[in-house]
């Protein structure tokens, strides 16, 4: 075979390969198989279940909010009559932090937890993700909506789960995905609108909560025991506490988060 023919054939093979592969996605079932192999442990006894409540306090006053410029897409800009600010750090009026992911990090032993049938909803609304931080169990459906009259793409950037990137034009049907591996926390972004960011926390168990406009969280249904409770904030990282709860006990645990030394507001 001449060099020229060889080069031509190689080009054809490359083009056919590209056309056939269609991207980096692997079948979700393949990834999910690795998670279903572990033997099932005992279930939590509801009669002894405990509750942990609390709030996440921000120590350093009210940081300067960074304004989002939506001028690049007129449809986005038209949706907001007032300036829109980044949700990276949102301090509530009572001095607490919003969108903090609080979860049981360790201490659960080998309990098994069924995958909830109800999906977690992540909406693209006003060219922002709602909610900004969301939790889901391993293999639980995440239902992604586009409520905007503009085109979005949704692109999670996980470290251990499969990365994918899907377009969602206006009027798209809901996209249902899941994450078969535990991962904290998966950044989700829209590359069309670079200010749009969200995070999905994926855990094997249901003991997590996200703080809202009051900065409070409640984790119910815990078996009695001693746990490491963690609170993750996207800019300031994770703080942890050890907490012990008895049968049917309700315990209050507050977190305090402050910016690291040298971090400017």
């Amino acid at each position: 075979m001449t060099k020229r023919k060889l080069l031509g054939n190689a080009s054809i093979v490359l083009v056919l390969f590209l056309a056939a592969c269609g991207g980096a996605e692997k079948p979700a079932e393949e990834a999910a198989k690795t998670e279903t192999a572990a033997p099932a442990g005992p279930a939590v006894d509801p009669a002894t279940a405990a509750t942990i409540t609390g709030k996440v306090v921000y120590k350093d006053g009210k940081p300067k909010a960074n304004r989002i410029r939506m001028d690049a897409d007129a449809a986005c800009a038209a949706l907001h009559g007032t300036p829109v600010y980044s949700e990276e750090v949102v301090v509530n009026d009572n001095g607490t932090l919003r969108s903090v992911f609080v979860y049981v990090k360790a201490g659960l032993g080998n309990y098994s937890f069924p995958t909830p049938k109800e999906p977690v909803v992540l909406d693209q609304k006003g060219c922002l993700y709602t909610p900004h931080v969301v939790g889901a169990q391993v293999n639980q459906d995440v239902k992604i909506l586009n409520s905007d009259q503009t085109t979005h793409n949704i692109h999670p950037v996980p470290a251990v789960n499969r990365e994918w990137n899907t377009s969602m034009p206006p009027g798209s049907e809901a996209l249902v995905k899941n994450f078969p591996r535990e991962e904290l926390l998966i950044p989700v972004k829209c590359n069309v609108h670079p200010w749009m960011k969200s995070y999905v926390g994926v855990l094997k168990h249901p003991f997590f909560a996200v703080t809202g406009p009051d900065g409070a969280f409640t984790i119910k249904g815990l078996p009695p025991g001693t746990y490491t409770l963690a609170a993750w904030q996207e800019k300031f990282g994770t703080v942890e506490q050890t907490v012990t709860v008895g049968a049917k006990e309700t315990k209050s645990v507050d977190f305090t988060i402050s910016p690291p030394a040298g971090a400017g507001d």
Binding site: T150, T151, N153, N165, S167, P169, N191, H193, P194
Partner: peptide, 22 residues
Amino acid sequence: AGLAVPDWPLSYGTWMPPMVGN
């Protein structure tokens, strides 16, 4: 903007997608 268009060689399944954002 590298992944603002998730498909290739077409863009959002067409030759001329809405030129919004990235």
